[in-house]
C-alpha cells in the first residue's frame, strides 16, 4: 500500500510505541528463527482448491460458502491459539488496543509473514480494521464472474480470528468489509469486541 497512507493511519494510532516495537521484534524473531516454513505455492493452491471445491459443491450459493469458510476458520482458530501461546507466551492483553497490535504484529507475522495495518478505530475503541497490503491466500486468484460481490474468498481468516480470540475470552465479531479481489481499494477485516468474558478467565491470573 502507498507509504503516505500507511503513515497517516499509524499516526491516528495512540499505541504505546516501545511496547509495539517489542511485539514487532518478538513476531519477527519467532517467524524467522522458531517456525518451520511450508511452500507458499502449496499453501495457496491448497486453500484455493478448498474454496473452489466448496463453490462448486454449493453450486454458487456464496453466502453458504462464506459460512463454511468461517466455520473452517473457527475450528482452526480455537486450536491455533494454543500454538500461538505456546510459541510466544505473551501475557494477557490489558487493552483491546494491545490485542490489535498482538494480532497484527505477532499472530499474522508468525503464521503468514504478514503485518496488516491496524486502522479505523471507532470512537468507543472497541472496533478496528486490519488492512492487508497483500494476501497470500488470494495470490493469483480471480473470482468467477458470479462470485464478485458475494464471495469473501479469504473468509477463513475471520473464522480463525473469531475462534482464537474467543479462546482467550474475547468475544468478537470478525468480518470482511472489503477485498481487493472484488475490486475494492484494499482488503480490510473488521474486528469488533462485543465483550470480555470475565467469568471465563481462568483462576490464578489476577
Amino acid at each position: 500500500m502507498p507509504q503516505s497512507r500507511s503513515s497517516s493511519l499509524s499516526s491516528s494510532n495512540p499505541a504505546n510505541a516501545p511496547q509495539v516495537r517489542h511485539l514487532k521484534a518478538l513476531g519477527d524473531d519467532t517467524w524467522k528463527n522458531k517456525v518451520e516454513k511450508v511452500n507458499a505455492e502449496f499453501f495457496h493452491l491448497t486453500y484455493g482448491t478448498i474454496v473452489a471445491q466448496l463453490c462448486e459443491e454449493y453450486a454458487g450459493d456464496y453466502a453458504r460458502v462464506n459460512g463454511e469458510l468461517f466455520q473452517i476458520g473457527y475450528n482452526l482458530g480455537v486450536r491455533l491459539i494454543e500454538d500461538f501461546l505456546a510459541r510466544t507466551a505473551l501475557p494477557r492483553c490489558d487493552t483491546f488496543l494491545k490485542t490489535s497490535e498482538v494480532v497484527s504484529k505477532c499472530a499474522f507475522k508468525i503464521f503468514l509473514n504478514l503485518t496488516p495495518e491496524v486502522a479505523h478505530w471507532n470512537a468507543a475503541r472497541d472496533s478496528f480494521d486490519l488492512v492487508f497490503g497483500e494476501n497470500p491466500l488470494a495470490e493469483h486468484v480471480e473470482l468467477p464472474p458470479g462470485a464478485s460481490g458475494q464471495l469473501w474468498f479469504s473468509n477463513v481468516l475471520c473464522g480463525v480470528l473469531r475462534g482464537a480470540l474467543e479462546m482467550v475470552q474475547l468475544d468478537c465479531d470478525v468480518e470482511f468489509v472489503s477485498d481487493t479481489l472484488r475490486g475494492d481499494m484494499s482488503t480490510d477485516i473488521r474486528v469488533k469486541l462485543n465483550k470480555v468474558l470475565r467469568d471465563e478467565i481462568p483462576a490464578g491470573e489476577d
Binding site: 505455492e41 493452491l45 484455493g48 474454496v51 473452489a52 495470490e139 493469483h140 486468484v141 480471480e142 473470482l143
Partner: peptide
C-alpha cells in the same frame, strides 16, 4: 500464473 487461479 493463470493455472494457479483455483477457479480456473
Amino acid at each position: 500464473k493463470t493455472l494457479m487461479n483455483p477457479f480456473y
